[in-house]
Design a protein around this nucleic acid. Sequence first.
DNA 1: TACCGGTACTTAGCAACACTAGGTTCCAAA
DNA 2: TTTGGAACCTAGTGTTGCTAAGTACCGGTA
Lengths: 109, 109
Amino acid sequence: MGKQMTEMLKGTLEGIVLALLTGKAAYGYEITTLLRAQGFTEIAEGTVYALLVRIEQKGLVDVEKRPSEKGPPRKVYTLNAQGKTELDEFWTTWSFLAERLEQLRTEGK
Amino acid sequence: MGKQMTEMLKGTLEGIVLALLTGKAAYGYEITTLLRAQGFTEIAEGTVYALLVRIEQKGLVDVEKRPSEKGPPRKVYTLNAQGKTELDEFWTTWSFLAERLEQLRTEGK
DNA sequence: TACCGGTACTTAGCAACACTAGGTTCCAAA
DNA sequence: TTTGGAACCTAGTGTTGCTAAGTACCGGTA
C-alpha cells in the first residue's frame, strides 16, 4: 500500500466500514472482500479485524455469531443507532474537508 | 478539534500545506494563520511546525531564513521539484479516495 | 489416513501522524 | 519594567493502519 494512502485512510477507513454496514449487516471476512472489490485492493486483513473490534468496543455496532458452512463461525456486525450517529458526523467532517481541498485544488493556490 | 477531524487530517494536512505553498513561499507562522483563515480554525501551532520540519527533512521544500520586523527571524519555505512531485501524487491519492467515498455516499450502501 | 487450501478470526509489535503543553527569542508599546 | 504579539521549537501521548504470525474449521485429494 502506498504510504500516502495508508496515512489518508486513518480516520476515513472507519467511516468507510460504517458506510458499508448501512442497511446490510456483514461479517469481517466479507467486509474485507467488499473493500477489495471497491478498489481498496491492498487493505490488510488484520487491519479490518482490529477496526471491527474497535467499533464494537465503542458501541457503534451490534454483533451476532453465526455458524458458517465452511470454516469457523462468523461474527456478523450490524450498525446500531449510535453507529448511525457516528456515520452522520463522519460525513459532515468529510464534507468539510473535501470542500476545502477541492477549493485548494481549483484555486491552484 | 473534533477527534474525527484530527484523525482525518493525518495524511491530508501535509498535502494541504504543500498545496498552500504552490506558487507562493511562506513561513510557519503565516501558514498557520492561512490554515485558520481557510477554516481549519483549531489547527495547533506545534502541529504545523512539526510538519514543516518533516517536509524539510524529506526534501520537499527549500528553506531560507529572513529577518522579521517584529520577532525572531522567519523560516521561509518554498516548494521544490520533489515537493511538486509529492503534491501530484497526493492529488492522485486524494482523488481516488474522494471518488470511492462519493460513490459510497450516493449509493447509500 | 494425511495433507493442503480456502474460510474466518485474533493479536503483539511497529511506524507515522496530529495533539498537548510547555518552552525560547525578539521587539515595541504601555 | 512588564506585557503582548510575532515567530519558532520540542518531548511525550494517543490513535491508527500495517506486518507477521498465529489458531480454528472443513472439504477435497492423494
